[in-house]
Protein backbone atom coordinates (compact mmCIF):
# COMPACT_ATOMS: atom_id res chain seq x y z
CA UNK A 1 0.00 0.00 0.00
CA UNK A 2 1.18 3.51 -0.83
CA UNK A 3 0.11 6.87 0.44
CA UNK A 4 0.31 10.52 -0.43
CA UNK A 5 -0.71 13.69 1.38
CA UNK A 6 -3.90 15.24 -0.02
CA UNK A 7 -1.94 18.46 -0.33
CA UNK A 8 -0.10 16.84 -3.21
CA UNK A 9 -3.22 15.50 -4.93
CA UNK A 10 -2.86 17.89 -7.86
CA UNK A 11 0.65 16.62 -8.45
CA UNK A 12 -0.77 13.10 -8.59
CA UNK A 13 -3.37 14.22 -11.11
CA UNK A 14 -0.78 16.03 -13.19
CA UNK A 15 1.45 12.96 -13.20
CA UNK A 16 -1.40 10.71 -14.36
CA UNK A 17 -2.53 13.21 -16.98
CA UNK A 18 0.94 13.27 -18.47
CA UNK A 19 0.43 9.79 -19.91
CA UNK A 20 -3.32 9.42 -20.24
CA UNK A 21 -6.54 11.39 -20.34
CA UNK A 22 -7.68 11.66 -16.73
CA UNK A 23 -11.36 11.91 -15.82
CA UNK A 24 -12.69 12.61 -12.36
CA UNK A 25 -15.85 13.91 -10.68
CA UNK A 26 -16.14 17.68 -10.70
CA UNK A 27 -18.85 19.92 -9.19
CA UNK A 28 -21.14 21.54 -11.72
CA UNK A 29 -23.01 24.83 -11.63
CA UNK A 30 -26.29 23.08 -10.77
CA UNK A 31 -24.92 21.64 -7.53
CA UNK A 32 -24.37 18.07 -8.70
CA UNK A 33 -21.23 16.34 -9.94
CA UNK A 34 -20.13 14.92 -13.30
CA UNK A 35 -16.98 13.29 -14.68
CA UNK A 36 -14.81 15.86 -16.46
CA UNK A 37 -11.42 15.68 -18.07
CA UNK A 38 -8.76 16.94 -15.69
CA UNK A 39 -6.65 19.91 -16.62
CA UNK A 40 -4.51 22.20 -14.50
CA UNK A 41 -6.86 23.94 -12.06
CA UNK A 42 -9.64 21.32 -12.09
CA UNK A 43 -11.02 20.76 -8.59
CA UNK A 44 -11.89 17.20 -7.59
CA UNK A 45 -15.45 16.98 -6.22
CA UNK A 46 -16.29 15.74 -2.75
CA UNK A 47 -19.71 14.55 -3.89
CA UNK A 48 -20.59 10.96 -3.09
CA UNK A 49 -21.36 10.23 -6.71
CA UNK A 50 -22.13 11.63 -10.15
CA UNK A 51 -25.62 11.86 -11.70
CA UNK A 52 -24.48 9.99 -14.81
CA UNK A 53 -22.60 6.83 -14.12
CA UNK A 54 -19.09 6.06 -15.39
CA UNK A 55 -20.49 3.45 -17.78
CA UNK A 56 -20.41 6.35 -20.26
CA UNK A 57 -16.66 5.82 -20.61
CA UNK A 58 -17.07 2.34 -22.06
CA UNK A 59 -20.60 2.44 -23.38
CA UNK A 60 -21.35 6.03 -24.42
CA UNK A 61 -24.90 7.24 -25.04
CA UNK A 62 -24.31 7.40 -28.79
CA UNK A 63 -21.49 6.25 -31.00
CA UNK A 64 -21.00 5.76 -34.70
CA UNK A 65 -20.36 2.16 -35.75
CA UNK A 66 -19.68 2.41 -39.48
CA UNK A 67 -20.45 4.40 -42.56
CA UNK A 68 -21.56 3.23 -45.94
CA UNK A 69 -22.12 4.67 -49.34
CA UNK A 70 -24.02 3.18 -52.23
CA UNK A 71 -22.77 3.68 -55.75
CA UNK A 72 -24.94 2.07 -58.36
CA UNK A 73 -25.17 -1.52 -57.27
CA UNK A 74 -22.19 -1.50 -54.94
CA UNK A 75 -22.12 -0.66 -51.27
CA UNK A 76 -18.92 0.72 -49.88
CA UNK A 77 -18.31 0.09 -46.20
CA UNK A 78 -16.06 2.25 -44.13
CA UNK A 79 -14.67 0.87 -40.89
CA UNK A 80 -14.40 3.90 -38.65
CA UNK A 81 -13.00 2.15 -35.62
CA UNK A 82 -9.87 3.69 -34.20
CA UNK A 83 -7.71 2.68 -31.29
CA UNK A 84 -9.13 4.33 -28.15
CA UNK A 85 -6.89 6.77 -26.29
CA UNK A 86 -5.41 5.68 -23.00
CA UNK A 87 -7.49 7.01 -20.14
CA UNK A 88 -7.85 6.83 -16.39
CA UNK A 89 -11.14 7.19 -14.52
CA UNK A 90 -10.42 8.35 -11.00
CA UNK A 91 -12.68 8.18 -7.96
CA UNK A 92 -15.13 5.48 -9.05
CA UNK A 93 -17.26 4.22 -6.15
CA UNK A 94 -17.51 0.52 -5.25
CA UNK A 95 -21.02 0.16 -6.71
CA UNK A 96 -20.01 1.64 -10.05
CA UNK A 97 -16.84 -0.47 -10.22
CA UNK A 98 -19.03 -3.53 -9.82
CA UNK A 99 -21.20 -2.35 -12.69
CA UNK A 100 -18.26 -2.90 -15.06
CA UNK A 101 -18.28 -6.62 -14.20
CA UNK A 102 -21.95 -6.72 -15.11
CA UNK A 103 -21.42 -4.89 -18.40
CA UNK A 104 -18.35 -7.00 -19.22
CA UNK A 105 -20.40 -10.17 -19.15
CA UNK A 106 -22.69 -8.68 -21.76
CA UNK A 107 -20.22 -6.94 -24.01
CA UNK A 108 -17.13 -9.13 -23.72
CA UNK A 109 -18.74 -12.54 -24.06
CA UNK A 110 -17.88 -13.93 -27.50
CA UNK A 111 -18.53 -12.47 -29.96
CA UNK A 112 -17.10 -9.52 -28.02
CA UNK A 113 -18.28 -6.01 -28.77
CA UNK A 114 -15.13 -4.50 -30.25
CA UNK A 115 -16.14 -0.91 -29.48
CA UNK A 116 -16.63 -1.67 -25.81
CA UNK A 117 -13.57 -3.93 -25.62
CA UNK A 118 -11.40 -1.26 -27.18
CA UNK A 119 -12.27 1.27 -24.48
CA UNK A 120 -12.14 -1.30 -21.71
CA UNK A 121 -8.62 -2.28 -22.76
CA UNK A 122 -7.42 1.28 -22.75
CA UNK A 123 -9.08 2.41 -19.53
CA UNK A 124 -7.69 2.18 -16.01
CA UNK A 125 -10.07 2.40 -13.06
CA UNK A 126 -9.00 4.02 -9.84
CA UNK A 127 -11.78 3.40 -7.34
CA UNK A 128 -12.47 5.28 -4.13
CA UNK A 129 -13.89 4.01 -0.85
CA UNK A 130 -17.04 5.83 0.28
CA UNK A 131 -16.89 7.98 3.37
CA UNK A 132 -20.44 9.33 3.47
CA UNK A 133 -22.92 6.81 2.08
CA UNK A 134 -26.47 8.18 1.97
CA UNK A 135 -29.98 6.94 2.60
CA UNK A 136 -30.45 5.76 -0.99
CA UNK A 137 -27.38 3.47 -0.92
CA UNK A 138 -27.94 -0.29 -0.76
CA UNK A 139 -24.82 -1.76 -2.37
CA UNK A 140 -24.49 -4.22 0.51
CA UNK A 141 -27.68 -5.92 -0.63
CA UNK A 142 -25.65 -7.08 -3.61
CA UNK A 143 -22.59 -8.05 -1.61
CA UNK A 144 -20.60 -4.94 -2.48
CA UNK A 145 -18.32 -3.50 0.20
CA UNK A 146 -18.05 0.29 -0.14
CA UNK A 147 -15.02 0.29 2.15
CA UNK A 148 -13.11 -2.03 -0.17
CA UNK A 149 -13.84 -1.00 -3.74
CA UNK A 150 -12.37 -3.09 -6.57
CA UNK A 151 -10.84 -1.56 -9.71
CA UNK A 152 -7.32 -1.55 -11.11
CA UNK A 153 -6.28 0.55 -8.13
CA UNK A 154 -8.32 0.96 -4.92
CA UNK A 155 -8.06 4.25 -3.08
CA UNK A 156 -9.07 5.48 0.38
CA UNK A 157 -9.27 9.08 1.44
CA UNK A 158 -8.83 10.27 5.03
CA UNK A 159 -8.82 13.86 6.33
CA UNK A 160 -5.18 14.28 5.38
CA UNK A 161 -4.06 11.53 3.03
CA UNK A 162 -4.97 9.33 0.12
CA UNK A 163 -4.00 5.66 0.06
CA UNK A 164 -3.55 3.45 -2.99
CA UNK A 165 -3.41 -0.29 -3.50
CA UNK A 166 -2.95 -1.78 -6.97
CA UNK A 167 -5.06 -4.85 -7.78
CA UNK A 168 -4.19 -5.58 -11.41
CA UNK A 169 -1.22 -5.37 -13.75
CA UNK A 170 -2.64 -2.19 -15.27
CA UNK A 171 -3.04 -0.76 -11.80
CA UNK A 172 0.50 -1.69 -10.78
CA UNK A 173 1.88 -0.03 -13.87
CA UNK A 174 -0.03 3.17 -13.15
CA UNK A 175 0.90 3.21 -9.47
CA UNK A 176 4.51 2.67 -10.46
CA UNK A 177 4.46 5.96 -12.38
CA UNK A 178 3.45 7.64 -9.11
CA UNK A 179 6.29 6.19 -7.01
CA UNK A 180 8.02 9.50 -6.52
CA UNK A 181 4.87 11.16 -5.22
CA UNK A 182 3.79 8.31 -2.96
CA UNK A 183 5.43 6.41 -0.13
CA UNK A 184 5.08 2.86 1.09
CA UNK A 185 2.93 2.53 4.22
CA UNK A 186 1.12 -0.05 6.35
CA UNK A 187 -2.64 -0.46 6.16
CA UNK A 188 -3.41 0.79 9.68
CA UNK A 189 -5.05 4.04 8.62
CA UNK A 190 -7.04 2.28 5.92
CA UNK A 191 -8.26 -0.36 8.38
CA UNK A 192 -9.44 2.43 10.65
CA UNK A 193 -11.19 4.11 7.72
CA UNK A 194 -12.88 0.84 6.76
CA UNK A 195 -14.20 0.40 10.30
CA UNK A 196 -15.65 3.93 10.21
CA UNK A 197 -17.40 3.28 6.91
CA UNK A 198 -18.80 -0.02 8.11
CA UNK A 199 -20.20 1.67 11.20
CA UNK A 200 -22.09 4.12 8.97
CA UNK A 201 -23.32 1.24 6.81
CA UNK A 202 -25.08 -0.11 9.89
CA UNK A 203 -27.12 3.09 10.13
CA UNK A 204 -28.40 3.05 6.54
CA UNK A 205 -32.17 2.69 6.26
CA UNK A 206 -31.91 0.09 3.47
CA UNK A 207 -29.28 -2.03 5.19
CA UNK A 208 -31.59 -5.02 5.64
CA UNK A 209 -32.93 -5.11 2.09
CA UNK A 210 -32.45 -8.64 0.87
CA UNK A 211 -32.40 -10.34 -2.51
CA UNK A 212 -34.23 -13.35 -1.19
CA UNK A 213 -37.09 -14.32 -3.41
CA UNK A 214 -35.24 -13.12 -6.51
CA UNK A 215 -32.67 -14.69 -8.80
CA UNK A 216 -32.63 -17.33 -11.51
CA UNK A 217 -35.61 -19.65 -11.74
CA UNK A 218 -38.07 -17.16 -10.33
CA UNK A 219 -39.68 -16.15 -13.60
CA UNK A 220 -42.80 -18.26 -13.26
CA UNK A 221 -43.37 -17.10 -9.71
CA UNK A 222 -42.80 -13.37 -10.21
CA UNK A 223 -43.83 -12.66 -13.79
CA UNK A 224 -47.54 -12.67 -13.08
CA UNK A 225 -47.38 -11.17 -9.60
CA UNK A 226 -50.49 -8.99 -9.20
CA UNK A 227 -48.37 -6.23 -7.63
CA UNK A 228 -46.91 -5.17 -11.01
CA UNK A 229 -50.15 -3.31 -11.79
CA UNK A 230 -49.89 -1.06 -8.80
CA UNK A 231 -46.11 -0.68 -8.98
CA UNK A 232 -46.16 0.45 -12.59
CA UNK A 233 -49.35 2.47 -12.38
CA UNK A 234 -47.73 5.92 -12.15
CA UNK A 235 -44.67 5.20 -14.31
CA UNK A 236 -44.25 7.86 -16.98
CA UNK A 237 -42.11 5.65 -19.19
CA UNK A 238 -39.50 8.40 -19.30
CA UNK A 239 -36.48 6.12 -19.05
CA UNK A 240 -34.63 8.35 -16.58
CA UNK A 241 -34.00 5.28 -14.40
CA UNK A 242 -32.38 3.40 -17.26
CA UNK A 243 -30.22 6.29 -18.42
CA UNK A 244 -28.76 7.06 -15.00
CA UNK A 245 -28.33 3.36 -14.18
CA UNK A 246 -24.73 2.09 -14.32
CA UNK A 247 -25.82 -1.40 -15.33
CA UNK A 248 -28.53 -0.71 -17.92
CA UNK A 249 -27.05 -1.95 -21.14
CA UNK A 250 -29.67 -1.90 -23.88
CA UNK A 251 -29.05 -0.07 -27.10
CA UNK A 252 -30.65 0.49 -30.46
CA UNK A 253 -28.83 0.49 -33.80
CA UNK A 254 -30.02 3.03 -36.30
CA UNK A 255 -29.07 4.43 -39.67
CA UNK A 256 -28.73 8.12 -40.23
CA UNK A 257 -29.08 9.25 -43.81
CA UNK A 258 -26.55 12.00 -44.39
CA UNK A 259 -27.84 12.74 -47.90
CA UNK A 260 -24.85 11.17 -49.59
CA UNK A 261 -24.34 8.12 -47.42
CA UNK A 262 -25.41 6.41 -44.26
CA UNK A 263 -23.96 6.54 -40.78
CA UNK A 264 -24.86 3.53 -38.73
CA UNK A 265 -24.84 4.43 -35.07
CA UNK A 266 -26.00 3.02 -31.81
CA UNK A 267 -27.60 4.81 -28.93
CA UNK A 268 -28.88 3.83 -25.54
CA UNK A 269 -32.34 2.38 -25.58
CA UNK A 270 -34.67 1.86 -22.68
CA UNK A 271 -37.07 -0.96 -21.94
CA UNK A 272 -39.36 1.79 -20.65
CA UNK A 273 -39.85 3.11 -24.20
CA UNK A 274 -42.79 2.25 -26.42
CA UNK A 275 -40.72 1.06 -29.38
CA UNK A 276 -38.21 -0.98 -27.38
CA UNK A 277 -37.49 -4.28 -29.18
CA UNK A 278 -40.09 -3.44 -31.78
CA UNK A 279 -39.76 -5.89 -34.63
CA UNK A 280 -41.36 -6.75 -37.91
CA UNK A 281 -44.42 -8.31 -36.36
CA UNK A 282 -44.89 -5.37 -34.01
CA UNK A 283 -44.12 -4.87 -30.38
CA UNK A 284 -43.99 -7.56 -27.74
CA UNK A 285 -44.64 -5.28 -24.78
CA UNK A 286 -47.69 -3.19 -25.41
CA UNK A 287 -48.35 -1.64 -22.01
CA UNK A 288 -46.22 0.35 -19.61
CA UNK A 289 -46.76 -2.37 -17.04
CA UNK A 290 -45.00 -4.89 -19.28
CA UNK A 291 -42.15 -2.48 -19.99
CA UNK A 292 -41.77 -1.60 -16.34
CA UNK A 293 -41.76 -5.27 -15.35
CA UNK A 294 -39.03 -5.97 -17.89
CA UNK A 295 -36.63 -3.55 -16.21
CA UNK A 296 -36.91 -5.18 -12.81
CA UNK A 297 -37.24 -8.79 -13.98
CA UNK A 298 -34.10 -8.27 -16.04
CA UNK A 299 -32.08 -6.99 -13.10
CA UNK A 300 -33.43 -9.37 -10.49
CA UNK A 301 -34.30 -12.57 -12.36
CA UNK A 302 -33.21 -12.90 -16.00
CA UNK A 303 -29.69 -11.55 -15.64
CA UNK A 304 -28.82 -13.68 -12.58
CA UNK A 305 -30.36 -16.66 -14.34
CA UNK A 306 -27.89 -16.29 -17.19
CA UNK A 307 -24.92 -15.10 -15.13
CA UNK A 308 -24.33 -17.48 -12.25
CA UNK A 309 -26.63 -15.70 -9.87
CA UNK A 310 -25.08 -12.26 -10.29
CA UNK A 311 -27.76 -9.55 -9.98
CA UNK A 312 -27.57 -6.65 -12.38
CA UNK A 313 -28.24 -3.93 -9.84
CA UNK A 314 -25.41 -2.56 -7.74
CA UNK A 315 -27.53 -0.55 -5.30
CA UNK A 316 -26.11 2.81 -6.34
CA UNK A 317 -29.41 4.52 -5.59
CA UNK A 318 -29.47 6.69 -8.70
CA UNK A 319 -32.92 5.52 -9.74
CA UNK A 320 -34.15 6.21 -6.21
CA UNK A 321 -32.94 9.77 -6.38
CA UNK A 322 -33.94 10.57 -9.95
CA UNK A 323 -37.25 8.93 -10.84
CA UNK A 324 -39.81 11.74 -11.27
CA UNK A 325 -42.46 9.66 -9.53
CA UNK A 326 -40.16 8.06 -6.97
CA UNK A 327 -40.79 4.52 -8.08
CA UNK A 328 -37.76 2.29 -8.05
CA UNK A 329 -36.12 -1.08 -7.57
CA UNK A 330 -36.24 -0.88 -3.77
CA UNK A 331 -39.99 -0.34 -3.79
CA UNK A 332 -40.32 -3.25 -6.21
CA UNK A 333 -38.17 -5.51 -4.03
CA UNK A 334 -40.24 -4.64 -0.98
CA UNK A 335 -43.55 -5.36 -2.73
CA UNK A 336 -42.72 -8.67 -4.36
CA UNK A 337 -40.15 -11.27 -3.38
CA UNK A 338 -38.73 -11.95 0.04
CA UNK A 339 -38.90 -8.49 1.63
CA UNK A 340 -42.69 -8.39 1.59
CA UNK A 341 -44.09 -6.42 4.45
CA UNK A 342 -40.71 -5.18 5.68
Amino acid sequence: MRKCSLEKINEIFAAIAKNAALYLPVDRTDGSAAYKKWEEGTVWSNALNTVRSPKDFFFPQTEDLMRFKTKGKTVQLEDIRTEAEAFVVFGVRACDVKSFDILDRVFLTEPADSFYANRRNHGVIVSLACTRPVETCFCKTFGIDPSAPAGDISAWKTESDIFFEANTEKGKALLHTLSELTEECDDGAVAEQKAKINAVMEKLPLKDLSTKGFGGGKTAELFDAPEWDELSSACLGCGTCTFVCPTCQCYDIKDFNTGNGVIRFRCWDSCMYSDFTKMAHGNNRLTQKERFRQRFMHKLVYYPENNDGLFSCVGCGRCLAKCPISMNIVKVMKKIGGNKGE
Binding site: R28, T29, D30, A34, R52, Q61, L236, G237, C238, G239, T240, F243, V244, P324
Partner: peptide, 16 residues
Protein backbone atom coordinates in the same frame (compact mmCIF):
# COMPACT_ATOMS: atom_id res chain seq x y z
CA UNK B 1 -25.25 25.82 -23.87
CA UNK B 2 -24.15 25.17 -20.29
CA UNK B 3 -27.62 24.20 -19.14
CA UNK B 4 -28.71 22.06 -22.10
CA UNK B 5 -25.37 20.31 -22.50
CA UNK B 6 -26.31 18.31 -19.40
CA UNK B 7 -29.46 16.89 -20.98
CA UNK B 8 -29.47 13.10 -21.18
CA UNK B 9 -32.60 13.07 -23.27
CA UNK B 10 -34.50 10.91 -20.84
CA UNK B 11 -37.67 12.74 -21.82
CA UNK B 12 -38.84 13.10 -18.23
CA UNK B 13 -39.64 16.77 -18.92
CA UNK B 14 -41.89 15.83 -21.79
CA UNK B 15 -43.44 12.83 -20.08
CA UNK B 16 -44.38 14.77 -16.96
Amino acid sequence: QNELSRCIRCNACRDA
